[in-house]
Amino acid sequence: MDNLIVSVSPHIRAKDTTASLMRDVLIALLPAVAASVLFFGARALLVEVFCVAACVGLEWLFQWGMKRPVTVADCSAAVTGLILALNLPVGIPLWMALVGCAVAILVVKQLFGGIGHNFANPAITARIVMFLAFSSAMAAWVSPNLVDAVSSATPLAGLKNGALVGYTPLQLFLGAVPGCLGETSALALLLGGVYLLARRVITWHTPVSFICTVFVLALLLRGPAFALAEILAGGLFLGAIFMATDYATTPSTAWGRVVFGVGCGLITCLIRFFGNYPEGVSFSILLMNILTPYISKWTRSKPLGGETK
């Protein structure tokens, strides 16, 4: 009976664990997965399952090979795989997807020390690497099933050329437009975002400041006709809700998150309006990832009662 465990307080813990948070992100992505299957057919699901399996498998292989504790059970590799898949076009050859997964899990995540230690978002970096390496396959957009399966330009590419190319804001909101698997349906992504907010997995700061910045800049620089289309088309919702809120690679203070979101919005608009590429969400998040340690330092909360010394 006196075989008691002695430990330092606190003796109880909150319910959330790393794994439960990651599971919540997976759940929040389900509407986007459903939308991708609805719009792009069964191959969408194939790409998604393949990327999740590849990321989990690669992480397991790396950790097993390096004789490190295997942490695939925390679901973070699965989240990376699913987010990467949602950033790919439906026709992407699977070997290219595998290369992307390897970049994400091996190079960006594990070589920097695994979960929590990577400075850049693995899925975004992998997407950018793939975008640069496999330019044509990564830009082979097809129209969703509901219309007809022919290749076509994304709404953003149309916007880039100064045309609204026949998509109504409602179409853009629902997502029956050409684009990456998971980025087209703002509705599905918003559902996921509301779930994450309700479960307190993320805070509103980054998504709201990111999206608002893009909206305001589009309004000012391109006019009211374009503003709504600019935030609904492209990868803004996917990026703002699911990638700019990644814990390890974004600031952890409320103000830091606002700065991060505004910065992302600025860079996105610079690229979209003045750069060569039609889309700038991924680049903006990656660039802001690099600034994150500094934003964190500048916005570190002031200790209460710490002023006098």
Partner: peptide
């Protein structure tokens, strides 16, 4: 314990705003 994921909860829940 597992690796810190830098979620910031410890910062945002500290009554004295420590990190």
């Amino acid at each position: 314990p597992t690796a810190c994921i830098k979620c910031g909860r410890c910062v945002n829940h500290c009554p004295l705003h420590l990190s």
